[in-house]
Amino acid sequence: MIYALLFYEFFKIGLFAVGGGLAALPFLYDLADRYPWFSDSQLTDMIAIAESTPGPLGINMATFAGYQTSGVLGGIIATFALVLPSFFITLLVCRFLHRFAANPVVEDAFYGLRPAVAGLIGAVAVGLLEISLFRTDHQGLLWGLDYKAAILFAALLPLVLKFKKHPILYIGVAAAIGIIFKF
């Protein structure tokens, strides 16, 4: 029975959370209020773990919450319940997209969308820089600058921009440097 309930709740989150993994957060807090599955503070731990492990955030959260609730099977069920609405809705969108792709209005819309997406991701990049280069326990920006991270960033960015190597390479090198120099 718990499995059916898990499926139902996470299917709902997958259906209504628009805008990616972080959009699922309010729904998860709501779950913590309504069910004894996990507490608010466990949810905070969950976010920290989901943020620092690979994989899309929403999937991490669903797996973790499902596991907390009812073990491995719970984790698998919650994850698939979260994924299913996206899967079917996007299959539908694909059909319409195919039909309207040649429509000039759709083309004009994408003419406006492309630069907007670039701008949006640019803002996300600024947020990423804040998280990765500054320590959060300081108030003043310059005081909080993590010099080791800043040097690594200054060295990495030109390399990343110039050489189209696979991201795995840069991630691996950065992980090694992080361990060796105790970031």
Partner: peptide, 17 residues
């Protein structure tokens, strides 16, 4: 944790690219 702190820096550079 050290590894992830390093990885976050690389991710920031990759996203900028």
């Amino acid at each position: 944790e050290h590894a992830f702190s390093g990885i976050r820096v690389a991710v920031a550079a990759l996203v900028i690219q």
